[in-house]
């Protein structure tokens, strides 16, 4: 389960993940790298806009909104531990 790789837009709200690879090419890839989305980066899905798209993510300490089309070019693994940590907190 821990190794399931999903596109970033499928990261559930409040869940965090780790970037595995980018499928984006050219300018979009540059932009994503620019934001700090490299393999191994931690990323957390924060909230969706009222219309469901874009989604805001916590990327290296800044809250940055991406459209699903762009986020889908980033693939992440879900961090199970985060949820478990949250559970034990409560």
């Amino acid at each position: 389960m821990t190794d399931t790789i999903v596109p970033l837009s499928q990261l559930p709200n409040g869940a965090s993940g780790t970037v595995k690879y980018l499928t984006a090419q050219g300018q979009v890839r540059r932009h994503l790298l620019d934001l700090g989305l490299v393999a191994g980066s931690k990323i957390e899905s924060i909230r969706r806009s009222p219309a469901g798209n874009p989604t805001a993510f916590n990327i290296r300490g800044a809250i940055i909104a991406l459209r699903n089309e762009d986020a889908d070019q980033v693939f992440v693994t879900l961090d199970k531990t985060m949820e478990e940590k949250n559970e034990s907190h409560r």
Binding site: Q27, H31, P54, A56, A62, I63, I64, A65, E69, D70
Partner: peptide, 11 residues
Amino acid sequence: EPSFFTLELPP
């Protein structure tokens, strides 16, 4: 087509 979009939601 719509281009790449990013928007920071600052504190």
